[in-house]
Simulated scan of single mutants.
Amino acid sequence: MANTRQHQLHEKKLEELMKLMPFYVVEYVDQKLGSRSPSTLLNYVHDYKLFFEWLMAEGITNAREIKDIPMSVLENLKLIEAQGFIRFLERRDIQVNKQDTKKSEKVSINRKISALRSLFKYLTTQTENEDGEPYFHRNVMLKIEVTKVKETLNARAARIATKIFHQDDDIRFLEFLKNDYEQELPADSRKVVYFKRDKERDIAILSLFLGSGIRVNELSNLRLRDMDFEMGQISVLRKGNKRDTVAVVPQAMDDVKDYLAIRNQRYNATGEDYEFVFLTKVKNEPQPLSNRTIEALVKKYTKAFMSNKSMSPHKLRHTFGTNLMEETNDIHLLMMQLGHSTTSTAALYTNPEQEKARKALKELGEKRKER
């Protein structure tokens, strides 16, 4: 299942983390690898690690290492103890940076509950011992509720709208990078040196996000063979390992061409069709850019442009989706372009009811003036 570099990396990390886990978690992961991605399972096992560490800290198990925690601890876990773990998740402080901390978001807590539910369901219904029975029957996690985060489609759409580029800000942003960003850097600094080296590459990345709406993982896994300049489109690997063809704004393809013109010489790369498009240079050797590096450069440049806030690749994707919807008002075209399978997700990029409300209220305000 690990077809992308991100999945391959997560598979290696998962393999290392499994060395710390009890046999029943190792067995669970082995069984689920065919149906769930390494990325999902890696997140689950991180959640299990946190849970097991809490069990040891609370004295619920006498085991000194996670891998030695017996399955009987899960079988006999009391409801009040399971609820105690949830309260721990809600109250703990998570370090954001050296100065700041934050509380866990409800979505994050729900994911941990879901991860534990999946493990407990496996152990109580999908396993079989020598007697043909599940490893154990009592599933305390069934008594722990997942409280869904309540938010209307209007609220989600409005929240997204406050965090993306509007009108022609995306165009101005790219112009800022091409013409003005370098002037804001300290003269003769390393920042200037690196920007000059990576300018064409970084502009191509940002332009491609804003000109196609692809996801960060889809961009980082682009190979030279995936670029079709004649047709103005690219081939990407969507979620679920589905291959798809995506149309690209012509100007974005031009920016990619400008980058490819200097790519081989500047990053010691070759033009082999299997090579990754976007590279960095490590010890004078070409290396494909990681998702984290791409996310960091998007944050850096958008913060420089907007001064007080930054954006993520996903927000650039939202910007493209909103622009496409405003231009075409075609939700099915939007779904195809962004790789959505349901109209409910695509509907986040258009909010006609909210627009109708704004116009109606404006008219009411005009009537008040007349009286």
Rank of each mutant, 00 (worst) to 15 (best):
T4C: 08
E11G: 00
S37D: 05
T40L: 07
H46K: 15
W54V: 01
L55R: 01
G59Y: 05
I69T: 06
P70M: 12
L77T: 03
I80Q: 07
E81R: 02
F85P: 00
I86K: 04
N97P: 00
D100T: 03
T101Y: 08
K106F: 02
L116K: 03
S118N: 11
Y122C: 10
G132D: 13
E133R: 10
N139F: 07
V140K: 05
M141D: 07
E145R: 14
E145Q: 14
V146Q: 08
T147R: 11
E151T: 12
A158V: 10
R159E: 12
F173H: 03
L177P: 02
N179V: 14
D180S: 14
Y181T: 08
Y181V: 09
Y181K: 09
E184L: 15
S189P: 05
Y194M: 15
D202R: 01
I203Q: 00
L210E: 00
I214M: 06
V216P: 01
N217R: 02
E218M: 09
R225W: 11
I234H: 02
G240W: 09
A247S: 10
D255A: 11
D258V: 07
Q265L: 13
T270Y: 10
N284C: 09
E285R: 12
P286W: 07
L289G: 03
S290H: 10
V298L: 06
K303R: 13
F305K: 01
M306F: 05
M306P: 00
H318C: 04
T322M: 05
N323T: 05
N323I: 00
E326I: 13
E326T: 12
N329V: 05
N329K: 08
D330G: 08
L334K: 00
A346E: 00
L348F: 07
T350R: 12
Q354G: 15
A357H: 10
K359P: 05
K367V: 09
